[in-house]
């Protein structure tokens, strides 16, 4: 079967995974244009977990745990293509470096973080030690940083490193439970995460270490994405996408998809790439 894509209208969108499909919701300055939410891609044989977006070529990338595989498709029409199929077990997180033209992913059964070019070539293991349940991973291409979280119940943590795998260190290890979602907003340089154990969304500037709670008492967050003043997270108890205003610290909106089933990863498909330079472009 060849699922197809309706080309997205202009503007920024949220992309999120729901079992056998990827849905999208257009965003406007205040929040979600819920009435224009649609299925972007039908992928009936797959269980899609993580979703990421390449703003340069306008392609969506996702991980599927049934293949398992990592695939991509163009938002302007075209078939999905599996770009990584071998040596995967449970790929649950994916991040795109749109400047370096690389992708990074986590595998919670092989306990690794790997990197490859966007077509799946030049694949390399970045880390295969001290990872138990690695899940969300995000990139900050302008500064060359990677961030990921591990929901190991004995020692949950959020870590960082340079994109070449050097300078690995733990950023957060206290007062974490199940850090399922992670997002980095290049405009504000804020790293935010959603934790299903502590039931909080928190943010921090990695360079300053000024951690603060955004909301608490949330139900069961899985994925989180940021756009403008809002954070958007998917929730396993409410089967919904929730919008939270980061400064106001409260829930603003709820989106209930037509199909009431579990939601997984969520990503922001920016209308334009965030600014930044690829310092490695000359090499």
């Amino acid at each position: 079967p060849r699922p197809d894509i309706t080309p997205l209208p202009a503007g920024t969108h949220l992309l999120f995974a729901q079992s056998g499909k990827i849905e999208h919701i257009p965003l406007e300055s205040q929040g979600m244009k819920k009435s224009e939410a649609k299925t972007l891609l039908h992928l009936p044989g797959m269980v899609v977990i993580a979703v990421a977006y390449d703003c340069v070529d306008k392609m969506v990338y996702w991980t599927d745990i049934t293949g398992p595989s990592i695939s991509r498709a163009s938002l302007s029409g075209g078939e999905p293509v599996a770009i990584v199929r071998a040596d995967l077990e449970s790929p649950e997180g994916i991040a795109i470096d749109h400047l370096g033209r690389n992708m990074f992913w986590t595998d919670s059964m092989r306990d690794r973080i790997e990197v490859a070019a966007l077509d799946g070539s030049k694949r390399r293991v970045l880390f295969d030690t001290e990872l138990v349940n690695p899940r969300p991973i995000v990139a900050d291409p302008a500064n060359g940083h990677l961030y990921w979280a591990d929901w190991n119940r004995d020692a949950p943590k959020i870590e960082t490193s340079y994109m070449d795998g050097t300078n690995r260190k733990i950023l957060v290890k206290d007062n974490l439970g199940l850090p399922n979602g992670l997002t980095y907003d290049p405009r504000t340089s804020l790293l935010c995460w959603a934790d299903a154990g502590t039931r909080k969304v928190e943010c921090m500037s990695p360079s300053q270490g000024d951690r603060r709670k955004v909301v608490e008492g949330i139900q069961y967050p899985f994925g989180i994405a940021s756009s403008g003043r809002n954070l958007y997270y998917t929730d396993w108890r409410r089967d919904a996408v929730l919008a939270v205003d980061r400064s106001a610290g409260k829930e603003m909106e709820e989106f209930l998809p037509q199909k009431r089933s579990r939601l997984y990863g969520i990503a922001t498909a920016y209308a334009q790439c965030p600014s930044g330079q690829n310092y490695c472009a000359v090499n």
Binding site: R2, P3, D4, T39, H42, P44, V47, S261
Partner: peptide, 27 residues
Amino acid sequence: VPVTGEVVCTNCPPGRRGTRCEICDDG
């Protein structure tokens, strides 16, 4: 689906997915 004309079920009963809701959801 526009190009192929394939018909896909879009709102399967709870616990099911697939073009005809023939596969069980994760979990």
